[in-house]
Design a protein around this nucleic acid. Sequence first.
RNA 1: UGAGUUGGUUGGGCAGUUGCGCAAAUUAUAUUUGUGAGGAAAGUCCGAGCAUCACACAGCAGGGUAACGGCUAACGGCCGCCGAGGGUGACCUUAGGGAAAGUGCAUAGAAAAUUACCGCCACAUUUUGUGGUAAGGGUGGAAAGGCGAGGUAAGAGCUCACCGGCGUUACAGAGAUGUAACGGCCGAGCAAACCCUACCCGAUGCAACGUCGACAGAAGUUGUCAGCUGGGCAGAUACUUCGAAAGACGGCUUCAGGCACAUAGCAAUAUGUGUCGCAGAUAGAUAAUUGCCUUAAAAGACAGAACUCGGCUUACAGACCGACUCAUUUU
RNA 2: GCAGAAGUACUCAAGUUGGUGACGAGGCGCCCCUGCUAAGGGCGUAGGCCGGGAAACCGGUGCGAGAGUUCGAGUCUCUCCUUCUGCG
Length: 116
Amino acid sequence: MKRTVALKKNRDFRRLYGKGKSFQAPALVSYVMKNRAGICRMGITTSKKIGNAVERNRSRRVIRAAYSSIEDKINGNYDFVFVARSRTKYQKSTQIAQIMLSQLQKAGVIDETVNN
RNA sequence: UGAGUUGGUUGGGCAGUUGCGCAAAUUAUAUUUGUGAGGAAAGUCCGAGCAUCACACAGCAGGGUAACGGCUAACGGCCGCCGAGGGUGACCUUAGGGAAAGUGCAUAGAAAAUUACCGCCACAUUUUGUGGUAAGGGUGGAAAGGCGAGGUAAGAGCUCACCGGCGUUACAGAGAUGUAACGGCCGAGCAAACCCUACCCGAUGCAACGUCGACAGAAGUUGUCAGCUGGGCAGAUACUUCGAAAGACGGCUUCAGGCACAUAGCAAUAUGUGUCGCAGAUAGAUAAUUGCCUUAAAAGACAGAACUCGGCUUACAGACCGACUCAUUUU
RNA sequence: GCAGAAGUACUCAAGUUGGUGACGAGGCGCCCCUGCUAAGGGCGUAGGCCGGGAAACCGGUGCGAGAGUUCGAGUCUCUCCUUCUGCG
């Protein structure tokens, strides 16, 4: 069981926006970067453009559920930032998990041997 | 049957699996059990609790409220009632004290409160002057109570009937007020313009505030209840600023609590008895999936607590219940 | 979360005891200057929406939105919307 802590500092977010690898989809944007902390860190961004507080909470929960479903497949220590878009609140967490998995496979983060 | 008025309820429910926050217990780090957003949690528009400002004091300034009676911890809220306005009606709306304390109110108009421009009448005189007059014209949002009759030189509450306003008296009511009789027409509107009257208000807000932590060092000298004044208080072992950026714990959820019944009251509400325990996060907990029920259709309305309450305002798909009014038809 | 400020033309902005037709500057359009531009100078500019008109132009509405007070609202009162700022 790999433990993941939350990413809180504003400068950590800005470092990923500047130097991390990014992957876009209509419902999700991911930023990935390798770290030396010995643990995975994850942050979620839901801007005011997404909607009101209910819709922002919904987007955050869906992204967090999707991340926890694929957390075991991650090989190595990385920082992640997931940015919700305006279509995220209409998606199920399983759909978001598929999008996230394909993006992280492109990033070379996923260890294919763990799952199968 | 059709058209409407008004008050309230609900905002899917139950169960299973994988996961999340909090609490308790067990055990020793993982299990078990319990529990886990709203009627508006929203806007932050009012009112309070609570905390700090040594005490919370006085006056001025400033701000707020405004028929009457009650409820409440308090309120600008609620209930009842009165007046005014709207509707055939059920019912709805209403910041609704004072304009003979004073100031102010553009343009038009003769004049906006002791006023005669045109007109009408009388007299003088021959072109106009003097006096009377608010019936008619014109200006204006508003023109000296409205309308009709009598009356007159022409007119006028000058007189009278009806209506309206004001005052006095009587009666009813707890009161605002209503009804009746009498009196005489003096006195237009704006106070969400200044103002006057009555009553109320100290400031800041849980990012308050307290404890821990907050290197070395440097600079400054009275501070403050706040806009002003007074009085008072603290003060060099003090206070403020820079260094200074980050953080931990408390405050933090059991109360003007919810529900049911009874009693008092038209009601708001109060009292008594019983019963229930009902979020406390700190980047911020509710996601995924399956089955059944209700439904025409299965979640698809508005929407996320952040110290806590009482209100107001605003947003809201659909469903359900109660009371009442009008019209038509039948008995 | 709490506290506060602002919203006027395409942009910046003035507008106080409430009073006719809402100052001004930049920009924009036309003209002059020049061989041609830039710069400079002069004139014009409720310009958006609705209606009428061939056009010139005329009428209504319009100061973030909607109600209210008033004869009359950019201004006064109330309720919403948007933007911005401060507080450990």
